[in-house]
């Protein structure tokens, strides 16, 4: 696959205004994005997601490292590289609220040097696609937040760039509109063959939409893998075991030593043991401990894990070793 974006050894440091303390916002970040891919950029607040996005957009100059967009260095050929990308950075704030839906689209097209006439058909198509046709003459400040968000994405689409960067596209949207935006993004990729990078806190967006996720924490990439790989990786090693007897003190000490994060809910009718295994072979150690007292096992359930839990585990560094091995 041909990479559309190549980010190499990116670094950005900020100085805090009051304390003059240096903050490493992005540290040695390297990744690439292939054509037609949807990549999720995940991370807690202050992880460096927005800084990375803004450096790709050419809005922020990195201290070191390079960003290549469609083969063009975005520092050396900034304006040329901007032809290949568009972005929604602040959602509904990226619009002119006193202009109508259509006027906004026309104005942003004009700012890219295109005439109203040239973009008229494209605008009509996008208005239909984004269910905004009946609102085209409405002032933006009279639209709901969801509609404003859709319009902001439509503006980015109008540019016909190869890559669209979206910073928190579902932030502040209700469940229904959030779902609608996700569906729209899915259609954009399928129908228009665009490459999308989404920076988000919304795990549903990542799980639903993204082919690949890059998790950043404290300015560094913690993991870069396919969403399905991460789900599989964590799912197979998370177990809930129902026991029809209590565990002895000795068994609990051994579990503590072997699986320090295990969760035990004792009950005379049916105890529950929740355990995450670092390696699949560890299940034999678990059986050995249970076998000691011939503890009766009622059932073993493979844990279902959602992306939010995976994210928390990765960011907390609980699964660092596993990830290193998996990569």
């Amino acid at each position: 696959m041909e990479p559309v974006i190549e980010v190499k050894s990116l670094r950005k440091t900020y100085k805090k205004r009051k304390t003059k303390e240096l903050i490493q916002a992005v540290s040695d970040v390297t990744f690439s994005v292939n054509r037609g891919e949807i990549v999720g950029l995940l991370g807690p607040n202050g992880a460096g997601k927005t800084t990375t996005i803004k450096m790709i957009c050419g809005l922020l100059i990195p201290d070191s490292g390079t960003i290549t967009i469609n083969g063009q260095n975005n520092q050396k050929k900034r304006l040329k590289s901007l032809r290949h990308i568009s972005a929604v950075l602040e959602g509904n704030r990226n619009l002119y609220w006193r202009l109508t839906v259509r006027e906004n689209l026309e104005y942003f097209a004009g700012n890219r040097g295109e005439s109203k006439k040239d973009v008229a058909n494209r605008i009509d198509e996008l208005l239909v696609k984004f269910h905004l046709k009946d609102k085209e003459k409405e002032l933006v400040n009279r639209l709901s937040r969801g509609m404003q968000q859709k319009l902001a994405i439509a503006v980015a689409m109008l540019a016909e760039s190869d890559v669209i960067l979206l910073d928190e596209p579902t932030l502040g949207l209700d469940v229904e509109t959030g779902y609608e935006v996700r569906e729209l993004l899915r259609e954009i990729v399928q129908e228009y063959d665009r490459t999308i990078i989404i920076s988000t806190h919304d795990m549903d967006v990542v799980q639903d939409l993204c082919d690949r996720t890059i998790i950043v924490n404290k300015g560094k990439i913690v993991t870069d893998d396919k969403v399905e790989n991460l789900l599989r990786l964590f799912e197979v090693r998370s177990y809930t075991i129902s026991l029809s007897a209590l565990l002895s003190e000795k068994q609990q000490i051994l579990l503590d030593q072997k699986f320090p994060d295990y969760k035990y809910t004792p009950d005379t009718i049916g105890s529950k043991l929740e355990i995450d295994l670092a390696k699949s072979e560890e299940i034999y150690d678990l059986f050995d401990i249970l076998k000691m007292n011939m503890t009766p096992v009622e059932s073993i359930d493979r844990g279902t894990i959602n992306f939010e839990q995976i994210f928390m585990k990765i960011v907390k560094g609980e699964q660092q070793n596993v990830l290193v091995q998996s990569s």
């Binding site: 901007l82 972005a87 704030r93």
Partner: peptide
């Protein structure tokens, strides 16, 4: 403050022309 300046800065025409 509105957030549109960043959008303008991303124009391939260059913000000075705008």
């Amino acid at each position: 403050m509105r957030g549109t300046l960043e959008q303008l800065s991303m124009s391939p025409m260059g913000i000075w022309k705008i």
